[in-house]
């Protein structure tokens, strides 16, 4: 019995310098999810950052997109071993969203509509490394790929780029999220092949 995503195991190793170890190039954009796809209307959508001081920063869709979308050209790497090179996104930098955040905590828990969670160090969201992505390939982000908005943290395995993102809660310690509790690595650097505990 093999628990792997269908179609991404057993292929020969590729030797492309842009591919992290153990990864294979795909031209498709596989859809992976641990649950049903939520159908979210941007009219009802909001995003929140909550800190240990009791502060809650909140944006509705218009407020978020008014902060300005950046173009992001990047490679993405899924822990199920596919990589997609040279993808084009547009999104709001997390640097902008954290400008007014009052926190001394070093870690975050990312929450999604539908209940998914994933943990990251705050420093991995800062300095032009992470976005709330609303467009892919010049089009609004499709629901199956996390639309209307997903986190985009392309330097880590893609399970960290939570689909259907709805908020971030600051945390004192690096408590594990959904897959991190269940066997996947607490950090997830594809270049160090940090797949599992």
């Amino acid at each position: 019995m093999a628990i792997f995503s269908r179609g991404f195991s057993g292929r020969p190793r590729e030797s492309n310098p842009d591919l992290p170890p153990g990864q294979f190039l795909t031209e498709d954009f596989p859809v992976l999810s641990a649950g049903p796809t939520p159908r979210l209307d941007t009219a009802d959508w909001k995003f929140e950052i909550k800190t240990e001081t009791g502060q809650t920063l909140s944006w509705n869709w218009d407020e978020l997109t008014a902060l300005g979308l950046e173009d992001v050209h990047t490679d993405i790497h899924c822990v199920t071993r596919w990589s997609k090179l040279g993808t084009d996104w547009r999104g709001i930098s997390l640097d902008k969203l954290f400008e007014d955040a009052e926190t001394s905590f070093d870690f975050v828990m990312v929450h999604s509509y539908g209940g998914y969670t994933t943990n990251l160090p705050l420093e991995d969201l800062m300095n032009g490394q992470a976005w709330i992505a609303t467009e892919f390939g010049g089009e609004p982000l499709e629901p199956d790929h996390g639309g209307p908005a997903r986190l985009l943290v392309p330097h880590l395995y893609f399970w960290k780029s939570a689909k259907w993102v709805r908020g971030i809660t600051m945390q004192r310690t690096d408590s594990p999220g959904f897959w991190e509790q269940n066997g996947y690595h607490i950090y997830g650097d594809p270049w160090r092949e940090e797949r599992y505990w």
Binding site: S33, A34, G35, T80, W159, N182, G183
Partner: peptide, 11 residues
């Protein structure tokens, strides 16, 4: 059983 994911999620 959602199998198209890093692991399987059984709901």
């Amino acid at each position: 059983v959602y199998d198209a994911a890093p692991g399987w999620a059984v709901r």
